[in-house]
């Protein structure tokens, strides 16, 4: 203590203290900031992004512009903040690149390889922020409990059935758009659709529907479509199909029987 007390007045005390505090600040800073990626990975990322930029220039820029800023005359949106998930979804489901200008890009066969999709996604992700491509743990429904599945059904009916129908058979929207059928759509694509809101579909962000709830909804959709129906399911389209069958199969066959009966008389 005495040493410290006496040393305070030493000529070198102030500069030394300054040095010491600078060192401390530097050390804390180094601890708090995340470790920067190793240079090797940085190079790989840069290569991926560059490959993506090239792919983008040849396949997408005609509509979305060379810097993905969007071209109004093509009706193609700005992609700087859509995120990797949006690109992965749009290209994986074959919606992009759009073949011809329609009100809504249809789902079709995807012609890109996994690597190319990853490159395109990395390029667009590098332009701004937006949802990243999900890990399997984010959408995989295998750990959902039986009760969770039922809850997923409730969530699905609250959030999705207005457009996609009660078991995801799809439905019509104004101006020639449709909410497509969700039967047979991958869990990953469902997650991505919810987080990026393709076309007319609203974005369901993780703040309102966390990943666990997405898993429950995916589990419900899978199970409800695997449950056997009580006879011909008529496409799960509801009462219109039932009315059609009542008239065609029901009244139709009964009228045929009536005609048959009316020609049967007692034999003389």
């Amino acid at each position: 203590m005495r040493f410290l007390a006496s040393g305070r007045r030493h000529k070198a005390a102030r500069p030394l203290l300054l040095l010491l505090s600078l060192f401390l600040v530097g050390a804390v800073y180094a601890l708090v900031t995340p470790a920067t990626s190793s240079s090797a990975e940085g190079v790989a990322d840069a290569q991926l992004i560059a490959a993506g930029k090239n792919l983008f220039a040849t396949n997408c820029a005609s509509c979305h512009g060379l810097n993905a800023e969007g071209l109004a005359q093509q009706g193609a949106p700005n992609l700087t903040n859509v995120g990797a998930a949006a690109v992965d979804f749009q290209v994986r489901t074959g919606r992009m690149p759009m073949a011809n200008p329609l009100v809504q890009a249809p789902r079709k066969e995807n012609t890109f390889t996994e690597d190319e999709i990853a490159a395109l996604a990395a390029y667009v992700a590098s332009l701004g922020d937006g949802p990243a491509i999900p890990d399997e743990s984010q959408y995989d429904p295998s750990s959902v409990s039986a009760e969770g599945v039922a809850r997923g059904g409730d969530l699905f009916r609250t959030n999705c059935s207005a457009c996609h129908n009660f078991k995801g058979a799809g439905g019509a929207l104004p101006d020639g758009r449709v909410a497509p059928s969700l039967q047979g759509v991958d869990a990953k694509e469902i997650w991505e659709a919810m987080r990026t809101g393709p076309g007319q579909m609203p974005v369901f962000a993780s703040g309102s529907i966390p990943d666990e709830d997405v898993q429950k909804m995916v589990a419900y959709l899978e199970q409800v479509n695997a449950t056997p129906s009580a006879g011909l399911s008529l496409g799960g389209l509801g009462p219109v199909a039932e009315g059609f069958w009542a008239w065609v199969a029901g009244i139709g066959s009964l009228v045929l029987f009536a005609t048959w009966i009316a020609t049967r008389g007692p034999r003389a």
Binding site: R157, T158, S161, A162, C163, H164, N165, F166, A169, G170, G171, A172, A179, L237, G238, P239, V240, E242, G243, F244, A246, W247
Partner: peptide, 12 residues
Amino acid sequence: PAQVTAGSQPDW
């Protein structure tokens, strides 16, 4: 009352 589904129709 908070839910609705595409294809909501009455009987024929």
